[in-house]
Design a protein around this nucleic acid. Structure first.
Lengths: 191, 191
DNA sequence: GTCTATATGTCGATAGAC
DNA sequence: GTCTATCGACATATAGAC
């Protein structure tokens, strides 16, 4: 449309390339040189749009958070029954993890590379996981609207822990076996 | 005693220093230069004892596997009652994770930094997690010796997933809250 | 806004003296 | 077995032309 789009295209191309490389390879092992080479831009163009490599990583996580929740919600909202909606959490994992070559959770992977609890990056990780817990708790609440808060809380926490565990084990074993185990366990918990 | 001990001391000092740094900081962010500086040895001395940085990492994981299971078994074997032995898994987590500054599982952290499924490092990770699953399954079997194999298997898998999930969340939130949740959930599962 | 060229430092790994 | 000195490659980041 206008000149703003040209800048937008460059920044977007950089971000998309970096997102792919950070996710597939990891943060520290991915150099700026590889990002700019594969994005097809000059080094100074990168530093025109992003102030540093870490700032690029923050942009990656910000975008990833939105994308990932969009994928998850699309899967859940295909179902009407509240029980099916909760179980579709694991249908989602069965689609997403093989598609991502079993690379696991982008936020947990990044957190492993940023041990300092005070970094901005760790803040985005915590925010992402908080949102996931809220999302699961909403699904559980709708399923059992009359149950007391304590039981809802514990049940939601357990489902969240199983969900996280299933992501992890699928990354280690490159298999969906534990996702199926988790779905079956949750099915027994909610019936 | 003799000249062999001097060599052993140097290699041990390098391995101990590297183990601390790999665990606290991560693999790729830890340079050989930092390892040799903090170990107080020359660079060529390092390459005399270890053929490469990755070989040093393999030695780290090998030692870590033995140490960690030693800690875990010490905690479990303090109890006689089979139910208490199973629940002491989480007492162990409550001790270990705060002591390790909530850095989480050394093997999962390293796995995040080595995405390639064919690396020797990923093999050690899988072996470590296999051993943990076997350990948990033994505890579950002793607790319910008459139950059918399928139920034992599913229950063990769920406890393993919760155990892994608890380690992960304590790393993200720097808290033992989810460990307590997990212990309570497992207590309800086995009674 | 994008480019080439460069600055400055650190990486993993090795050569050769002792 | 341990040391100092050094290798070539690559890291993040910047200067200045266009």
């Amino acid at each position: 449309m206008n000149s703003r789009n040209l800048s937008g295209d460059t920044a977007t191309r950089i971000l998309k390339t970096a997102s792919r490389l950070f996710y597939e390879q990891g943060y520290h092992v991915t150099g700026i040189n590889q990002v700019i080479t594969e994005a097809g831009v000059a080094k100074a163009s990168f530093y025109y749009h992003f102030s540093s490599k870490e700032e690029l990583c923050l942009a990656y996580l910000h975008q990833r958070h939105q994308d990932w929740f969009c994928w998850l919600q699309q899967e859940v909202e295909q179902h009407e029954d509240d029980q099916e909606r909760l179980l579709s959490l694991f249908t989602f994992l069965e689609r997403w993890l093989p598609d991502s070559n079993f690379r696991g959770c982008a936020f947990l992977n990044i957190a492993s590379e940023f041990p300092s609890p005070d970094s901005k990056i760790r803040l985005l990780v915590v925010n992402h996981k908080n949102a996931l817990q809220s999302f699961i708790q909403q699904l559980v609440k709708k399923l059992n609207p009359l149950t007391d808060e304590n039981h809802i809380g514990l049940l939601s926490d357990v489902i969240y822990l199983l969900f996280e565990g299933a992501i992890n084990e699928s990354q280690i074993y490159r298999s969906t076996r534990f996702i199926q185990v988790t779905r079956e366990a949750v099915r027994q918990l909610i019936t």
